[in-house]
Structure formats: structure tokens, C-alpha cells
Design a binder for these strands. Structure first.
Lengths: 229, 229
DNA sequence: TCAAAAGTGTTGACCCTACACCCATGG
DNA sequence: CCATGGGTGTAGGGTCAACACTTTTGA
């Protein structure tokens, strides 16, 4: 790429991305952190991050960093905020663009062990390097906003899920409890779930019907605004 | 600042800020653009922007850029989004952090002529360089979200304003018309406006009462969530 | 006296919340 | 047969949208 004259005399900086990776274990909303074995912050908990390369977009860099830890591609990711304080990183002037990702925790998920990953309940986060705690707090706010009006919750659940599972997820996201009659009425009235004929029987004797999210039905409603909560 | 070893081998880039500056002329929501007399994009319309320096935060850089065009400090500004495509700027690899600002258009506003500034109705924007149109579209969405639940509208009005003026502002922001009975009832029921005893008499014979935004009353309500629209 | 904008109340529809009991089944 | 979690309906209150006439006063 050619650099034009007007741009020559300005400062250049490192651009990082940091990923808040959310998961749901059936009970609690979780964030995936790594224990750093490199400086700065060696030995401390941190978000998974990395530096943007000249030939990749910031979005692509965030997707790459997510993949480096989880192996996953085609994941729901959203840019959160740019953190640009001068001394936010003691290792140098680094501007960080934070992203959050929603992934499914299930049997097939294979985390890269060399990063020392660990899931933490978002209610009980450890001390973290730099401004990473602030990033997670912002991500918690953002996921609440999104979950209220977009079908992001389904990114955190298995393809087939029950209404009680979906309700527990929303309760974890909002740190609240909902009345199950009101919850199921509201969700089902959106008419974006397909009810299956099979039941989930591990968590109760009666068994709860499985549902699937119907992307096509949602697409038709999307433009007119939908309220999940 | 010392740069540690782990950071040495990564790419460094230019960081720009671009400011969407909104104003309200009593009828329409406006955006302030400049006509570039420098490359790339010489002769085209553009947002006011600039490069971040090593010793300033991104927020501070945005405030500086705003001041360079308007002379204003202590202005409502909010970070909008980071635009990080590889080829978004033909002049080189530049990551742009966009901000939007809300300023009052009134007699005392002195724009720096050397930047060739011009106010445009946000309904009728000219062609613009790079991804600046996308930035403005995003800013329009964001100001709608903000104006619905935070008192940002008052940043665009004179200190003293009438209810019809406030309503016209909201109508411009949402590109919609509201019933004036419903509008005034909703706004006044929030109990965050001080009614003055004087009237604005230029736009009608009867005259409309002036109001002022009461910051203290709003602060007490802020935490419980307020709905303007 | 007239034109032009300001100001003001009521009603019906809808939505949201609160709330309790029966069902199915595995052990 | 009983303990456990799944599933369902209704009534009251509050909020929102629709709607029209009177007031003021400068020209």
C-alpha cells in the first residue's frame, strides 16, 4: 500500500483486539479468560487478545484471535468499544478494540490449552490485567441490550433447547428471575420457535419439549422490531 | 514510554478520529462537514478528523479535533464505532475511531473557516470520502437510541427553549411527527423541566413559555431509567 | 377580526404483571 | 404414591395512541 505524504508525519501505534467470550453452562453466564504466561501481566488473568496486522481488518483480527483460543469460526461477534487511554497498557501505547463473542459450551468445544483458558462465572470474576474488567462490564451491559431485542440468546444454547433452559439463560443474562408463565407466553407469541415432538428428560421426570430457533420466521419479523424481554 | 520486547514485532498503524458533529437549526438536524483541501479526497466532503498522537488518549484526540473546527470545549461527545477495514482510506492503513458530538448552533459559534465547514441537513447529505457516510448513518441510529432514554436533546437546544422547539427537535431526530398533547404530557410528566415565566414571541403571536432543563432533578431520576420517547 | 401557533383532557386498546393449580413420570 | 419440574389462563392496572377545541395576540 502506498502511503501518501500527508500521512507520513503522524504517530503509529499498536492496535490490539480483546475478546470477551461468553458461554452458558445451563445455570450461569460465563466469560472465558486466559492466564497470561507472557509480559506484561504474566501470571494474571486476562481476556484473550492479539495485535492487528497490516493486511487484516480489525474485524478479521478479532475473529482470528477468537479462533486461536477456541478453534471456532462463524461465531456471533460484535465490536464493543475502543479503549484508547495513553497508559492503559504498561507495555507500551496500545489501542485496544474490544469485541464480544457468544459461543456454545458443549462437548465438541476444544480450547487451546497453551493459553491456559478458564471459564469464570460473570458474577465472580478474578482480578484482571489493564482495563479488562471494564471491558467485561461493558460487554455485560451490551449483551443485555442485545438480548432484549435480537435473538442472540440462541447463540449460547444448543441447537435444540427447552423453554426452561431458555428462561434460565435470560435470567442469567439479566441477573433476575422471571415468571415462567409470562416468559413462555411472551417468547412463544413471537412465533419464532419451532416446537419439536421430542422431549428433554434428564432434568425432570415429565420432560420438557425441545424447541429450535426458526431463522426464517425471525427474518420476516426483524424489520418491525421484536421484543424478547 | 518503554516498549517491552513482546510488543516489538507487531505492526503499527495510524489512528484517526472522525467526528460527526450534530446541530439543530430549529427545523432540521444538521451535520457539519468540511470540504477537504488536502489529499486524499481533495475537493470532496468529509467529516472533520485528525490523527491521534502518542501522548494523547483517543477521547482527548476527538475533543481536540472538535475544538480545531468549532473552538468549543466541554461538549457532549460519545465514541461511536471503530472502522478498521484494510483499504478504507486510500492514503494508507488508517484505523478510524468515530465520535459524535452535539453542539448548539447559535450566534456565538465561530467555525474555523480554513477547514471550509458547511452544515448539511442530515436528510440530504452530499457524497463523502471513504466510509464517512456509513459513520453518519450509524450516528443517526445512535442519537435516536440516546435521545429516547437520556437528556441529550438539550445539548442541541439553547439553554432556554420552548416545548414546540423541543418537539421539533425530537421530530427531526426521529424523522417523525408527534402529537403535541401526548408529547408535552410525556415530557412534562418526567418533571425535569423548569418552566420560566417569560415567553418566546418571535414564532407566534400568543408566545410559548420558555423552559430549562433541570440537571439536578434529572440526576435524581437517572438511575431508575427515564423514557423521553 | 382574522390568521397562526400555543395550550389543554378524555377514552379505548393494548400490554404487562401478578398470581396458583394440575400434569406427567421416574423412582 | 409421591416428589419434582413442566405446563397453562385470567383479571386489574398502567401506559400509549388517537383525537378537537379554545386561547392569545399581532397585523
Amino acid at each position: 500500500m502506498t502511503i501518501i505524504n500527508e500521512y507520513k508525519d503522524h504517530d503509529r501505534m499498536l492496535i490490539a483486539v480483546d475478546c470477551i467470550i461468553f458461554g452458558f453452562d445451563g445455570e450461569n453466564l460465563k466469560a472465558l479468560l486466559i492466564k497470561r504466561d507472557f509480559e506484561p501481566g504474566l501470571g494474571n488473568w486476562s481476556l484473550m487478545g492479539g495485535f492487528i496486522k497490516n493486511e487484516e481488518s480489525v474485524d478479521a483480527g478479532a475473529a482470528r484471535v477468537l479462533q486461536e483460543l477456541t478453534g471456532l469460526t462463524d461465531i456471533y461477534m460484535e465490536q464493543l468499544y475502543c479503549f484508547g487511554e495513553v497508559n492503559r497498557d504498561p507495555g507500551g501505547r496500545v489501542i485496544s478494540i474490544s469485541y464480544f463473542a457468544l459461543i456454545k459450551i458443549n462437548g465438541s468445544l476444544q480450547l487451546m490449552k497453551e493459553h491456559n483458558p478458564k471459564w469464570f462465572n460473570i458474577q465472580r470474576l478474578p482480578a484482571m490485567v489493564f482495563d479488562h474488567k471494564k471491558m467485561i462490564e461493558l460487554a455485560k451491559e451490551r449483551i443485555r441490550i442485545r438480548a432484549a431485542s435480537r435473538p442472540v440468546g440462541f447463540e449460547l444454547l444448543p441447537e435444540k433447547f427447552t423453554l426452561p433452559q431458555l428462561q434460565k439463560l435470560y435470567e442469567a443474562i439479566y441477573d433476575a428471575t422471571f415468571d415462567k408463565r409470562n416468559f413462555s407466553r411472551k417468547i412463544l407469541s413471537l412465533n419464532i420457535l419451532k416446537k419439536l415432538t421430542i422431549k428433554e428428560k434428564t432434568s425432570s421426570k415429565k420432560g420438557a419439549f425441545f424447541y429450535m430457533f426458526d431463522h426464517n420466521k425471525y427474518k420476516k419479523l426483524e424489520h418491525q422490531g421484536v421484543k424478547f424481554i
